[in-house]
């Protein structure tokens, strides 16, 4: 049960988007549709899990002062690996997400978990932490993408549900900020009711 608890912590209690407010750039930049949001979330989750595992393995050997640069290099290596794999096997998604794939390197969530969790915990715990936080991030991005796609173009996962053009502004940049703002309000409201 402990395992489940660890996973669910990333989705609700320590949700990276709605509670910790980290990784805003990809959150806003890639969620023009539910599918894009989900793709970005999963790519981040893979990097987060792999880098958590690697860092928990080597952190004992790294001198304190070069800790951060070492972590950044490790993370950058995994990001590039993910980049190549996506280019080869999911070229469509890769070209939509574009610049935001290499920018996973500077996503505060990844470095944050490396520093705050993986460097102090065992391999298995770090892996679970990576998956949990990654799932939380994926869930928030998918929800935001879902809302923006539904309001902006009247479809969900590319399937047209509502007639007409929708409120275009939600697909454009301002809609990203506004939709995320209102989703956060909703999240806060629900959380204050439950807890």
């Amino acid at each position: 049960m402990n395992f489940l608890k660890d996973i669910s912590k990333g989705i609700i209690k320590e949700n990276p988007t709605f509670v910790l407010i980290l990784g805003m750039c990809p959150t806003l930049g890639t969620t023009t549709s539910a599918l894009n949001g989900m793709g970005m979330g999963l790519a981040t989750m893979v990097v987060l899990t792999l880098s958590n595992i690697a860092i928990s393995l080597v952190s004992g050997q790294i001198p304190g002062k070069v800790r951060i640069p070492s972590y950044i290099v490790i993370i950058a290596a995994f990001v590039t690996v993910v980049q190549f794999v996506m280019q080869a096997y999911a070229p469509g998604l890769y070209s939509t997400l574009g610049l935001f794939i290499p920018l996973i390197v500077v996503n505060c969530i990844v470095l944050g978990r490396a520093e705050a969790f993986a460097s102090k915990n065992g391999v298995l715990d770090s892996a679970i932490d990576g998956i949990g936080i990654g799932l939380g991030f994926t869930a928030s991005l998918t929800v935001l993408g879902f809302v923006r796609e539904l309001l902006g173009s009247g479809s969900v996962f590319g399937i047209k549900l509502l007639e007409g053009d929708g409120m275009l502004v939600f697909v454009l940049a301002p809609g990203a900020f506004i939709a995320l703002g209102y989703l956060m309000v909703l999240f806060n409201k629900l959380k204050s009711r439950i807890l």
């Binding site: 004992g60 050997q61 790294i62 001198p63 304190g64 070069v66 490790i74 290596a77």
Partner: peptide
């Protein structure tokens, strides 16, 4: 936990990490 930082082990650590990462990347 973390090792003590001396110029020598800092340089070695960074070099090793960079070399290993570039080897992995070259492979992939």
């Amino acid at each position: 936990m973390a090792k003590e930082s001396t110029i020598k082990n800092m340089a070695i650590t960074l070099t090793v990490i960079c070399l290993v990462s570039s080897a992995i990347l070259g492979g992939v």
